[in-house]
Design a protein around this nucleic acid. Structure first.
Length: 495
RNA sequence: GGGCCCGUAGCUCAGUCGGCAGAGCAGGCGGCUCUUAACCGCAAGGUCAGGGGUUCGAAUCCCCUCGGGCCCGCCA
């Protein structure tokens, strides 16, 4: 392994040896009492330029050394932590010749260091720490990416996200923002008296959506299991059980390709609300998106898209009717009276590559994707889908052939999906059976135990599902899902 | 799965018509007590993704393989 190292890495290993030989420890156990760099910078800014704090206790910062500027007997070292960055002012006058030279000789960009000293504002007005002591907290053997351009190679940014993170404050802030956005989402739902639950990711048969599952094997069961493709059916069982308002945030898995808006493993939120319908849910969704938009604007003030999010997601959102809008955009009339063969021909004419044995619902979806979705630029609710497309939603109370469903689109991308939930067990059983007859690749797996659960009585309810990754993309204006997921599936690196 | 493009030093990138493998950053040595992409000087650093072919000669042209990006197709 040592043979594979670059000259730079050999040089750094030599420093490790040298530090130990001098009685030092390049990987110490702790560094107590540090403050965020932002805190020390704030104290420094309160000083007159060219002065440092006098009296009072010394302060400490710790973080990754980014760069060193040496001017003979004075040096400037920039240290990054999660809060920001601070310049360390290192001077032979404070440290003595021997310690000063040793610090410069032993440290490299990329090292984790800790420094103690007093706040100082330079003559040029740069907040700094006048260093009394500096120690290496973790010696880096690999050099960090180039200090100005950072890590540019898109492959390396995904394979070694930690390097992307350590080299790029923007990447760090993006993922911090995502985490805090999810926290805000939980706070909102908790405030609405929803109960967070966790259901099984390993299931006998993945259902609740039309997608190819990952398949695995259980030694305990001595039989096959699948990874869930949706959270829907377990959560509705909890409504049967009386939990009334539940939500889950978790990963679902779909054995499909990765592209700029799809990942095989992604984060989903689903919530289920007893005694409410999809109109109630639409109002809740609007309030939720608006609150999250306000939060992202606070979290990413440098991002123009994030700053505009509160205005963009200000209720009420635009609405269009599914069938009306599809007929208007496509020029096709009487869509709901078309035969599956006619719909297939229309879908093919619109450029969709669909197998012959797909369901009529699939053909309709393809038409909608082609004619309507690209036009949905502003956040827009699409209302009342054909029943053919949606086997788990309740039939519309007044519009035959339709179900009570909405989806939210923004910039042509689907952000969320909600129904008034189907709770008639006999109708659910019939819809599952109709799915199986389609025999295409787009059916929902029959879940007999779920039908059994409905026979115990599920209260009228509405459910809503959305992808957390796409939520983050839409609010923060990030075009690729690869930039909002920390660790993506990657092929093994060739040896 | 199909098409197009990319892979050169640890990192960011040049490399023309096929003719000695280049720069900046980082690292080494020397200089510099308020710099901030610090600066100045010297020396060092390469499996040009991997394999094969054409050629007097290949980073450069051709073929194959691996990895990646974008677009299209598919799940959201």
């Amino acid at each position: 392994m040592v043979e594979d190292e670059s000259p730079l890495e050999r040089e750094r290993r030599a420093k490790v040896v040298r530090i130990r030989a001098a009685g030092g420890e390049p990987y110490p156990w702790s560094f107590p009492g540090r403050l965020p760099t932002s805190e020390v910078a704030a104290r420094a800014k309160a000083l007159e330029p060219g002065t440092h704090a006098t009296g009072g206790d010394p302060v400490a910062v710790a973080g990754r050394l980014r760069t060193t500027r040496t001017h003979g007997k004075t040096s400037f070292l920039d240290v990054d932590d999660l809060a920001g960055s601070l310049q360390l002012f290192v001077r032979v006058d404070e440290l003595g010749e021997e310690r000063y030279q040793r610090i410069l000789a032993d440290t490299d960009p990329g090292d984790i260091v800790g420094a103690r000293g007093v706040p100082l504002l330079t003559r040029r007005g740069e907040p700094s720490l006048l260093v009394h002591e500096l120690e290496i907290l973790a010696k880096a053997i690999h050099p960090p990416p180039e200090k100005f351009h950072g890590l540019q190679d898109p492959e390396e940014r995904i394979r070694r996200r930690y390097v992307d993170l350590l080299a790029s404050p923007e990447t760090r802030q993006r993922f911090v923002a995502r985490s805090l956005l999810t926290r805000e989402l939980r706070a909102f739902l908790d405030g609405e008296r929803f109960l967070e639950v966790e259901t099984a990711a390993l299931v006998p048969t993945a259902s609740g959506a039309a997608a190819e599952p990952f398949r695995t094997h259980s030694n305990y069961l001595n039989g096959p299991l699948q990874l869930r493709i949706s959270l829907e059916l377990p959560l509705k069982r909890l409504l049967v059980g009386g939990l009334e308002r539940v939500y889950e945030i978790g990963h679902v898995f779909r054995n499909e390709d990765l592209d700029s808006i799809h990942s095989p493993e992604f984060s989903e939120l689903e919530l289920y609300w007893a005694y409410a319908d999809y109109t109630d849910m639409r109002a809740l969704a609007e309030r939720m998106y608006h609150r999250l938009a306000q939060r992202i604007a606070e979290l990413l003030p440098e991002s123009p898209a994030a700053r505009e999010a509160p205005e963009r997601f200000r209720p009420p959102f635009a609405t269009v009717d599914y069938v009306t809008e599809l007929e208007r955009r496509s020029g096709i009339s009487d869509l709901l009276s078309k035969s599956p063969e006619q719909l297939r021909a229309l879908a093919r004419a619109a450029g969709a590559n669909v197998p012959d044995d797909s369901s009529a619902g699939k053909f309709l979806d393809k038409l909608f994707e082609h004619y309507v979705e690209p036009t949905l630029e502003r956040p827009t609710f699409v209302l009342d889908y054909p029943a053919l497309t949606t086997p788990l939603a309740k039939r519309h109370r007044s519009r035959p052939g339709l179900v009570e469903r909405f989806e939210l689109f923004s910039q042509g991308v689907e952000l969320g999906n909600a129904y008034t939930e189907l709770n008639d067990p006999d109708e659910q059983e019939e819809r599952f059976r109709a799915q199986l007859k389609g025999r295409g690749d787009d059916h929902y797996a029959y879940d007999a135990d779920f039908v059994e659960a409905l026979r115990f009585g599920m209260p009228p309810a509405s459910g809503f599902g959305l992808g957390i990754d796409r939520l983050m993309m839409a609010l923060a204006g990030i075009p690729s899902i690869k930039d909002v997921i920390l660790f993506l599936p990657v092929r093994p690196r060739p040896t």
